[in-house]
Design a protein around this nucleic acid. Structure first.
Lengths: 214, 214
DNA sequence: CGCTAATCTAGAACAAGTTACAGAACCGAT
DNA sequence: ATCGGTTCTGTAACTTGTTCTAGATTAGCG
């Protein structure tokens, strides 16, 4: 990704500060979205219902979130921030970076198992998003990356190889979630896939030669 | 053309054999689907247009493919079978199994670059599919697995570890495609991700002593 | 051939995402 | 407090996936 991501639309970076009521509206909308998604999943999040449940006109809903996908991706941003905060409070106990990442992702996975419908709505929206949602999806991606780097124990100084491994882990994470949510993979299989991909981290160790062979 | 592998009848319970005209209709539909997808991507595949372009009534289209997602996943099955046949003709030239898989996937990726809109329609449908499409998506998954195992050089005897690695490679493949199609990752990055994940294959040692040269 | 059941066609109808628009409410600056 | 522009509301309309129905066509069979 280049540095020229959004250099030509000065409207977005300058997010006009929302008033109190506007911030409240936004919260109500996100809450309604998560609530509807929580039971019923993607299909249960109907824009008219979200609008009604959050006491907002349909047009207003679309002003805040220009599409259902935008809304659900924003919902995921919201949930991910919660999760990031929660995970920070209890860092993984394992010693190997790879094991720590696997442990963290399995915790996140368990959280999703508690709300499978919500997870369904968010992940489906995320992978279905087209170019018009790229900035928002990118934010989600950065959040996920941050969570994984946190688990690894290195925040900012990662080698390009490690960043590649993290990207691959993210790919696996999303795709494995999808296969689980659509009933094509068991929980056990998701666990195995996560553990398998996390072995990549041991491969890209920053200190060459310090890993004990298997 | 195509006298081999007529064994693929995914609908196990009572697939009534199609008549000549029915088979022709099915082909016309799939062709129209791929054509519309080819320019315009997912959104350009509109059921009414598919029906019209393939000279079939809308109700008939829905009898053959019970949803747009089913239709596009079936289109992907079709394209994947082509690709599998094509790839078989020119097997990868690398020696390491991991490198062979990477080479094969990059070939497939290059094919997708030639028809990005078609790729977009198929992959979006694949990851958006819900439980009702599981059998069809599973068929696509098995096809992909077969392609990868082919590239590795072992067709039927793979260790569970290797199968895990293959699943993770598939996850990465799909997800990396998505990020590329939605403009969030460059071609170079997809290449790196594929090469990174293919290192997993080297990790999962083959059966001791059974190294199989070409 | 003639019959019956399944299939196909044409078109209307419905559902949910999205857009459009007129008027009410709100916000900030004078 | 008032004015001007923006935002919000309520509602209708439009789009496209999906379902439904009535009649025409076809396939299989005695």
């Amino acid at each position: 990704m280049g540095h020229m991501t959004s250099e030509h639309r000065p409207a977005l970076p300058a997010t006009p500060p929302l008033t109190e009521r506007q911030e409240a509206r936004r919260r109500r909308i996100l809450h309604a979205s998560a609530q509807l998604a929580g039971r019923g999943g993607f299909d249960a999040v109907q824009m008219r219902e979200v609008a009604e449940l959050s006491n907002v006109a349909l047009g207003t809903l679309y002003r805040y979130f220009p599409s259902k996908i935008h809304l659900l991706v924003a919902t995921m941003q919201d949930q991910l921030q919660h999760m990031h905060a929660t995970l920070r409070k209890r860092p993984p106990t394992e010693s190997d970076p790879g094991a720590r990442v696997a442990q963290t992702l399995m915790r996140a996975f368990r959280a999703m198992q508690r709300e499978p419908h919500l997870a369904d709505a968010m992940v489906r929206a995320l992978t279905f998003a087209d170019r018009s949602v790229s900035p928002e999806v990118d934010t989600v991606s950065r959040l996920t990356t941050a969570i994984i780097l946190d688990a690894m124990g290195l925040d900012s100084d990662a080698t390009p190889e490690q960043l590649s491994a993290v990207r691959v882990i993210e790919h696996t994470w999303h795709s494995a979630l999808i296969t689980w949510l659509s009933g094509r993979a068991s929980i056990a299989q998701v666990k195995i896939d996560i553990e398998t991909v996390c072995r990549l981290i041991e491969l890209t160790g920053p200190q060459p030669g310090l890993q004990r062979p298997e």
